[in-house]
Nucleic acid binder design. Structure first.
Lengths: 131, 131
DNA sequence: TTGAGAATGATAATGGTTATCACAAGTTGT
DNA sequence: ACAACTTGTGATAACCATTATCATTCTCAA
């Protein structure tokens, strides 16, 4: 099933950006260009593209969802205090494989590996109060 | 820094449950028992326990956050359509290690590895519409 | 007892996401 | 071309988990 025009437009915009975008971000960007798209449509297609395996998403501690093309196999460090995230340059796991027994009919589309902890800045801030 | 009484109470309740609990779930459970706890306090302590490395959390596609003791090193399959999640029996990665260069001052507390895709049920439901 | 500071919790506010629903666009059959 | 029907769209309202507010309660030392 090829993508529809709007789906393609959305995916193209997502690929154009180096970083991850939230639904709101994406809507704002598309709104500026020619061919704007309503917010509801953005979220609709993000979900559809996700189910097609074209887009992956992860959630920040704030609850906000960030989307990126599924082909980007990036992993992240996220601070549980300030919420800042950084992208790992190299993947720490060399093979992530699930055998059929583990899957039990489930068809994997993408995966996320995230490390949560405290960034240097927040560690320092807390040091005064309690080691 | 030892846990406060309320923090300990909350962590104990979390450990008592086999599955993961949302903030709302946890609040409801504590409300029933003796020694109830306000919703704000539940969320406050969940965040603190997370920063202490005692509790980990992950987000469902719905945006809801699920909490569990950090000591549980479980991974999950999550359906991007219906949102159902299942727990993997065994860990698919044998060593998840980050070297200092990758960390850059970040102090990891816990990590999450999640697989997103379509569960068997949702695959069947979509089969009629489009292969 | 008294006062300063921390903890608590009922409630209001926040804000990303989803549901609603009327309308536009496309499709088919005649 | 026209009608009947399906699908896609988007402004807006509704949803709901989470967070902020703030008055009250608790803690504890002097």
């Amino acid at each position: 099933m090829p993508l529809t025009a709007k789906q393609g437009q959305l995916l193209k915009e997502l690929k154009r950006c180096k970083g991850e975008l939230s639904g709101q971000d994406l809507h704002a960007r598309l709104r500026k260009g020619s061919r704007p798209m309503g917010l509801a449509t953005v979220y609709r297609h993000l979900r559809q593209l996700q189910q097609l395996g074209e887009v992956r998403c992860r959630h920040l501690p704030s609850g906000e969802a960030l989307y990126a093309p599924a082909e980007r196999d990036e992993h992240h460090l996220t601070c549980v205090d300030c919420g800042s995230t950084t992208t790992l340059e190299s993947c720490p796991v060399h093979s992530v494989h699930l055998d059929a027994g583990q899957l039990g009919g489930f068809r994997p589309l993408f995966h996320t590996l995230e490390f949560f902890g405290l960034c240097g800045e927040c560690q320092q801030r807390h040091q005064g109060a309690a080691g």
